[in-house]
Design a protein around this nucleic acid. Structure first.
Length: 510
RNA sequence: GGCCCGUUCGUCUAAGGGCUAGGACACCACCCUUUCACGGUGGUGAUACGGGUUCGAAUCCCGUACGGGCUACCA
């Protein structure tokens, strides 16, 4: 029997959660749920200088909004805690020392200035970024170049040091990536990465291996940007726990912006959201718009992300979360990067708005109305309005233009579109229409349409020329659903009142 | 520069040796029509290039070009 599937998402709380991050969560989540496994979230906060207040909370809020709840995490608890690496600090040192003892790692005492000096000294056109590797390590200050007793003294004197992995020379390490197949590296070309920092915190390289082991992770998924450091992780697994215990790896393709890896800058530059939810950086005061506030439905957000790099092999594109779970297959995840297309993203949202019932949409639409100070007192009416207009709303925010006039009279009436074509016949028509509507019974969409058209015929006017003015008089402009539907939902009293007032305005302008 | 990954319409993709290279978004035209949408019909539009392998290649191999990522005591 195979081990229970356990996957993890390991964000560092340094800012907003962007598209690529959410998709990584999604694929982890889908894979776990598909296989009846567990999804854990581990906070990678080993770099204290990059700590951003609120970022951790924010990440969990995003996951909640997306409906991708972890099974284990800082917030959800679980048997493999703590789930915050800063709280696991004491754990890592012993593994680092174990590596040093086995000769797979060494202490390095080089200061930041010395490293800088080294890079300057060996920098050339041919080698613009010299690495701390087997070519140079014997020229640096570390336990490989310093006699053992002296090293011991330095350590006892609390000299700041880091532990670096000693990359072997001339070996090939390879592994089988679940979506790329075999990937291999020449260890001579990889540098001696720092494993344990001078402040005693592990770097990602050590922490990811130790924690994946301790947390019994069976499948380790991450973005393609991690592929180059995979040989370090592979070796660490071999040295520390053996390859049998190592999780299966998969490196997801990157989500690209208009120019390379998608960044939050792209969002501001090209006018689309990049983060799941609004993010305000308390340090810089900078705020970035999120998909949620932009008017996206979580179901649509998840759906569009899932299809950015994966498909089920059919022509199906709209998937619910449940459908994604049952169809998801890591082998069908692409290996090439995908450029994010905001137009397609909006199409997904439109599809989901059309598919979501008015009652489910109601609280979300109400919230959007409240943002523009439109107060809804009649929920029944709102639900009817939503049902009437949702197919013409791409974003949740579109409901404001399409439906808020039901709840507050238009602040402005576009009389300019009516007045030039106004005449005595039309004026008389609307006077009578108002009278007829006052008598109308029953007050239904069909009846209102019938009254209007019969009257037009009687006056020998074209309905086409009357409906636009009628619409503008009721809602203020050239938008909204069918005009008789509008009048019907507005009710007799309000319809008559709006027509009367608007007509007065038109006469003033004409 | 080095290493790694990648390359089918503008974009997301299907087709894992046999083809009129299919779909979706966007775009264009027409229809519907009561503004704007929805919906319907049709259209423009792609296998980066060069070599192999093969009866046959988008598909397998090699090279070139191009794109991306990494190259921190950041993740």
């Amino acid at each position: 029997m195979s081990k229970k599937v356990r996957v993890r998402f390991a964000p560092s709380p340094t800012g907003g959660l962007h598209l690529g991050g959410v998709r990584t969560v999604l694929y982890n989540y889908l894979f776990a749920k598909k296989h009846g496994g567990e999804f854990v979230v581990r906070i990678e906060d080993t770099d204290q200088s990059r700590y951003v207040p609120g970022a951790e909370e924010y990440i969990f809020d995003c996951l909640r909004w997306c409906g991708l709840e972890p099974d284990e995490s800082v917030q959800h608890g679980g048997p493999y805690g703590p789930y915050r690496q800063s709280e696991r600090k004491a754990l890592y040192k012993k593994y680092a020392e174990q590596l040093v003892e086995a000769g797979h790692a060494y202490y390095a005492f080089d200061s930041a200035a010395e490293l800088e000096q080294m890079r300057e000294k060996y920098k050339s056109a041919e080698n613009p970024a010299p690495q701390y590797d087997h070519h140079l390590r014997m020229k640096m200050r570390n336990s490989l170049t310093i006699p053992a007793d002296e090293t011991k003294k330095l350590l006892e004197a609390n000299t700041p040091y880091v532990v670096r992995i000693k990359m072997p020379v001339g070996k090939t390490v390879s592994f089988n990536d679940m979506i790329r197949g075999e990937v291999s590296f020449d260890t001579s070309l990889v540098d001696d990465k720092v494993l344990l920092k001078a402040d005693g915190m592990p770097t990602y390289h050590l922490a990811v291996v130790v924690d994946d082991y301790l947390m019994k992770i069976t499948h380790a998924f991450r973005g393609e940007e991690w592929l180059p450091s995979a040989p370090v992780h592979l070796l660490l697994w071999q040295y520390l726990f053996g390859w049998e215990a190592m999780p299966q790896w998969a490196h997801f393709p990157l989500i690209l912006g208009p120019s390379g890896k998608l960044s939050k800058r792209d969002g501001a530059k090209y006018g689309f959201p990049v983060f799941a939810m609004n993010w305000q950086d308390l340090k810089t005061g900078e705020s970035t718009e999120g998909f949620r506030e932009k008017g996206f439905l979580p179901a649509a957000f998840i759906n569009l992300l899932a299809l950015l790099g994966w498909n089920d092999g059919t022509e199906k594109e709209v998937f619910s979360k449940e459908e994604l779970i049952s169809s998801f297959d890591m082998a069908r995840v692409h290996s090439s990067g995908a450029k994010f297309d905001y137009e397609k993203a909006k199409w997904f949202n439109h599809e989901w708005i059309k598919r979501t019932s008015a009652s489910e949409l109601l609280p979300l639409v109400r919230a959007n109305f409240e943002k523009v100070n439109v107060v809804v007192t009649d929920s029944m009416l709102l639900e009817q309005v939503i049902a009437l207009v949702k197919e013409r709303c791409t974003l949740l925010t579109d409901f404001v233009e399409q439906g808020s006039f039901f709840f507050s009279r238009p602040a402005q009436i576009d009389t300019a579109s009516i007045v030039p074509k106004w005449n005595a016949e039309k004026s008389a028509f609307f006077d009578q229409l108002i009278q007829h509507y006052q008598q109308a019974n029953p007050w239904t969409t069909g009846e209102l349409e019938k009254i209007c058209k019969e009257l037009a015929q009687e006056k020998q006017l074209k309905t086409g020329e009357l409906l636009l003015p009628l619409r503008i008089m009721l809602v203020g402009g050239k938008f909204g659903p069918g005009v008789f539907d509008i009048a019907y939902l507005l009710g007799k009293e309000e319809t008559v009142e709006r027509l009367t007032q608007a007509k007065r305005l038109i006469l003033q302008g004409a």
